[in-house]
Amino acid sequence: MSNASRILPLELRAVTFETERHRLIKEMSFQLAAEGRTIILGSNGAGKSLLLRLCHGLIRPSQGEIIWQGAAGRDPKHFQAMVFQRPVMLRRSAAANIHFPLSIRGIPRSSRRHVIEEALRLVGLGRFSRTPAHLLSIGEQQRLALARAWALKPQILFLDEPTANLDPAATHVIEEVIAEMDRAGTKIVMTTHDLGQARRLADEIMFIHRGRLLEKAPAAAFFDCPQNDMARSFLRGELLWWQRRELTP
């Protein structure tokens, strides 16, 4: 994957997302580099999922711009993939679940079969190729969802709390595949509220709270000495309340 053909870096300029009553993402500006694993940390309701959906283009910002700096006129959609918190399985076999997006993205017929086999093997689902996807366990479904994303060979992969409902064994497989994709040069952007997972995976941390980006730092620096007081509280495992003053008496 040469740098010239990449749609990254991704830049957000003062992106705001609001519904009729609430501003849920507030004037976020940042840039995501073409490589590495960026983990978005924050408590429930901080806006992590919304931010991923904005970046992935599933929802439009109310204000601000989302710019794929390397897109060069190409449709950035075709170079991305996303894994959702609850895996969405098409009502067909595991193999057909991977085949579908391959055909959508125009992957040549001749290579699809090979890619599908490889993807299923990667997540340890080789023998379930013909099993209807909805009969798989939730952990197996999430592995299949990840295999499906992997098969698309995206330049950037968004993951929205992919292991939130999974047991440690399934979580381990997911994290292994994520690491594998990172090594292959795929940009990883993942949300989690699991600090242990963030420590295991992150190259870079973005800490968000109440729709604002409070800190964006290399993982080592963030975990050593977070600059933001809310982030410090979060790392100490304190509950984050809406009001800052209630936090630090």
Partner: peptide, 20 residues
């Protein structure tokens, strides 16, 4: 409700989504 985001994430056209 279940499929929409996933299908849009794949880049599925509207007509294709309806058939799915």
């Amino acid at each position: 409700t279940e499929y929409e985001e996933q299908l849009r994430s794949f880049g599925t056209s509207t007509g294709r989504s309806l058939r799915v």
